[in-house]
Amino acid sequence: MTLMKLTASTLAIAAVSATAAMARDNIQIAGSSTVLPYATIVAEAFGENFDFPTPVVEGGGSGAGRKKLCEGVGENTIDIANSSSRIKQSDIDLCKTNGVDEIMEVRIGYDGIVFASDIAGPDFAFTPTDWYNALAAEVVKDGKLVPNTAKTWADVNASFPAQDILAFIPGTKHGTREVFDVKVLEAGCKASGAEEALVAAKGEEDGKKACLALRTDGLSVDIDGDYTETLARIAANKNAIGVFGLSFYQNNTDKLKVATMDGVVPSTETIASGDYPVSRPLFFYVKKAHIGVIPGLKEYLEFFVSDDMAGPEGPLAAYGLVSDPELAKTQEAVANETPMGPLN
């Protein structure tokens, strides 16, 4: 009777599910979609050259990854969280309450954020002030705080062509947005004198917050998807300027033209030297309790930060990661399994 057989196999499956506490032999990683391509490159090479299985790497965003890391200790929690921004005190507290006491912080290098437009469009040489004056809700004009009415880039800066303002910036769930807020909008807010005026008008805290308020008339568009979406939108709207990661731009140099910031062309060299202002460190966080439990975890960590991978000549640099000048220090910390200290 087929029905009997089916029922029997159902029971068998249920029985197997009940005894699911199987030893995990692969490393599990989740987090930032910016770090994701780097992590997959290392995971791939690791699986090829070591006897351990290729680690499983998931995206999902920096914040989500760190939260998953802090869910607890055990085989059905992840081992490593990729993050494009530094861990927050709230994450560390969450980790503590769930028994994750020791976390290792590993800085893998730096990533640049570039401003690029369609390849056929005009060249731009931006400063953070230009971006603030183009996108902010309120700007300073003739010493007074007024709502932003600039329609073209020429309204913002007379040296720019009269191209309509349309900017595709990362949505608030992205780690990239944080950097954009701090390094571009806040810097522009300060430099243009708007911060002073806003603080004077709204008080210390609200004024600083108002620096990050963007215009809502549709000229600044939040992109919640990935850079591929921004690229597709620019292809459809040649006037637009988008915000990308350096590595994404380097893979699409035939479609995009990059703008300079403060007169500096973004490249791995200018970011490493610190000349290009809009950059950020990339991290991953490791659950120390899993080292020695999950096979290959220590080897993976050492392989990731080795000169062969994360060094200036390695495949990560070839993909667009700016190698960390203090890589040797990171290698030492990983070798000694030094947990991170309190945030400063």
């Binding site: 197997v16 199987m22 692969n26 791939e44 290729t54 499983v56 998931e58």
Partner: peptide
């Protein structure tokens, strides 16, 4: 449920394979 991941390794034959990524 974490299926959107970079998985390069083939899962084993069932039933153990049901638990592999």
């Amino acid at each position: 449920i974490g299926m959107v991941a970079f998985v390069r390794e083939f899962p084993d034959a069932p039933p153990e394979g049901f638990f592999d990524p």
